[in-house]
Design a protein around this nucleic acid. Structure first.
Length: 510
RNA sequence: GCGGUAGUAGCUCAGUUGGUAGAGCAUUAGCUUCCCAAGCUAAGGGUCGUGGGUUCGAAUCCCAUUUACCGCUCCA
């Protein structure tokens, strides 16, 4: 089975068993938006909760918060999102290349600038020491003509961009006869604004309502609460703030099932450290996050660590943890050393001091930040991908089984009376009632026992409890393990503690 | 966003030169069954992605649209 077939099977399986549905499917769905079903939401909750406990509960210097999706618009100026994601773009129809329209015009101006420089250089050689470059620029007719072109282009560009006149930008590009550097053609599309942030209005009255954005990342909710948490939580550096939540991006191409969605959930932790110590902590978190992934029993071969050579404007070190999805190695988690970029920017725009007083050195400073940021939906897909198997048994039959790590499994225990009579169902429900306090359980009495085991395999239930004749005699049941299909006879009273200790096997410890 | 392919029941699919839809599995109810699916009986479920058009008649032909997958492009 190749990867493409595998991926299709995983998508079908997800829908068939209630893990993931296309959003608003009865209306044909909405592009790149998905809903989590009855089992999917359990799995997703479990992944989130496992991450949260690993961060907040297992580290005594990390606390969790939950900030709003709406934030003050200035937040996104400080973070750089407003500038970075409001660019007018234009495509060349022949080369299929996309450019920032303003960059094309600036390149055009730079080219003419080069010509002027060459003219001036030539003249300088010609006139020798008496040459006055400034004078030459102001008087030479050819240079003046070039300069006029530049000035015109700049004036028009600034004017059209300021007025948000996209058609004007396009006609300027046409007027200046700018060609595509790749195809050399002037066959351009319309200029379009690609705003990667979703916006909406705050206030129910349309006029006078303020435009606010749906956050494109959760990190800023942590930065703007840095002071609040620092003061109210009596935090001492180094310390971390964790958060999970939805973020929204208007992706140009959103594809590959739940890998790239327009609405997605992040699990982020920002760790505040003393400037100068960031590389040490960067390394620490790289190790810790690897450990976390390993604790879920996914083999190392499925992971790849990719250090960034080209760093984003805010970072001085960055690593991606990539996972081998059916469509190749793709980013699952990022660990970034963000320096003091964000806190500094917020400090500047808000006018509030976002600083830490270090009692050891009696100094105030803006802390540096190490960020770990993982996509919850991507982790979900990674778990599902890794778990899915169509196993060929000794008798040649096929069983579809999800080897979900037990701690994350949507249903932990299925309780099954061997047959639907002789008081078996009653006994089974009695056991079910004691187990469902501690575990998410399922009861099933329909069809042959083997088929019921297979149904539980297909949704990744790690344990099946079966009630048989002997149960009624001596209060023992069989407990069947999903991966090995092995059964063991145990006392009813010990079921809960056996399962609990199995679930705790191999879990993450800092 | 561009190009290619596709959309028929919950899933996988069949449906002839246009004559108003079928199978297997799944689901539900019952029977049988003392441990690893595909025994028996019965039932429910689809205006064939959506909207137009051509036609006496469209799942089938044409157009538009939408969704998914693949390639290109983009990705803080």
């Amino acid at each position: 089975m190749n990867n493409e077939e595998l991926f299709k099977k995983i998508i079908s399986h997800s829908k068939e068993y209630g893990f993931i549905f296309p959003s608003s499917e009865i209306y044909d769905g909405l592009s790149a938006v998905y809903d989590y079903g009855q089992l999917g939401s359990e799995l997703k909750n479990n992944i989130r909760s496992y991450w949260w406990k690993s961060m907040v509960q297992m580290h005594d210097n990390i606390v969790g918060i939950d900030t709003a999706i709406f934030m003050h618009p200035t937040t996104w100026k400080a973070s750089g999102h407003v500038d970075a994601f409001n660019d007018p773009m234009i495509d060349n129809k022949d080369s299929k290349k996309r450019y920032r329209a303003d960059v094309l015009i600036e390149d055009y101006m730079a080219k003419i600038e080069d010509k002027i420089d060459k003219e001036v250089e030539k003249a300088a050689k010609r006139f020798g020491e008496t040459f006055d470059a400034k004078m030459y620029r102001e008087t030479n007719p050819r240079v003046m003509e070039y300069q006029q072109k530049i000035d015109y282009a700049r004036t028009q560009m600034v004017k059209t961009l300021e007025e948000n006149d996209l058609a004007g930008v396009k006609s300027l590009i046409e007027e200046l006869a700018i060609v595509c550097p790749v195809s050399g053609s002037r066959n351009w599309t319309e200029v379009r604004q690609f705003n990667l942030m979703f916006s909406t209005q705050m206030g129910s009255v349309a006029e006078g309502a303020d435009v606010v954005y749906l956050r494109p990342e959760t990190a800023q909710g942590i930065f703007v609460n840095f002071l609040n948490v620092l003061k109210s939580g009596r935090m001492k550096i180094p310390f971390g703030i964790a958060q999970t939540g939805k973020a929204f991006r208007n992706e140009i191409v959103a594809r590959q099932f739940i890998f790239r969605m327009r609405e997605f959930e992040q699990m982020e932790m920002q760790f505040f450290v003393k400037p100068g110590e960031e590389m040490e902590w960067f390394k620490y978190w790289k190790d810790q996050r690897q450990k976390w992934h390993r604790s879920l029993g996914i083999p190392d071969s499925k992971y790849r660590f990719h250090d960034h050579d080209k760093l984003a404007h805010y970072a001085n070190a960055a690593t991606d943890i990539e996972f081998e999805f059916p469509f190749g190695f793709k980013e699952l988690e990022g660990i970034h050393s963000r320096t003091d970029f964000d806190l500094m920017a917020h400090q500047k725009l808000s006018g509030k001091k976002l600083q830490y007083f270090d009692p050891e050195t009696n100094e105030n400073y803006v802390p540096y930040v190490i960020e770990t940021s993982i996509g919850l939906d991507r982790m979900f897909l990674a778990i599902l991908t890794q778990a899915f198997e169509e196993q060929i048994l000794e008798d040649g039959s096929v069983r579809t089984v999800l080897h979900i790590p037990p701690i994350l499994a949507p249903i932990k225990v299925a309780v099954l009376p061997l047959v639907k009579k002789d008081g078996f169902p009653e006994k089974a429900k009695e056991i079910l009632d004691t187990l469902k306090m501690d575990f998410n359980c399922q009861y099933d009495e329909k069809d042959a026992i083997g088929r019921r085991y297979r149904r539980q395999d297909a949704i990744g239930t790690p344990y099946c409890i079966t009630i048989d004749n002997q149960t009624l005699e001596d209060n023992t049941v069989t407990i069947r393990e999903r991966d090995s299909m092995k059964q063991e006879r145990v006392d009813i009273d010990s079921i809960s503690s056996i399962i609990t200790s199995n679930l705790r096997n191999n879990i993450y410890r800092a």
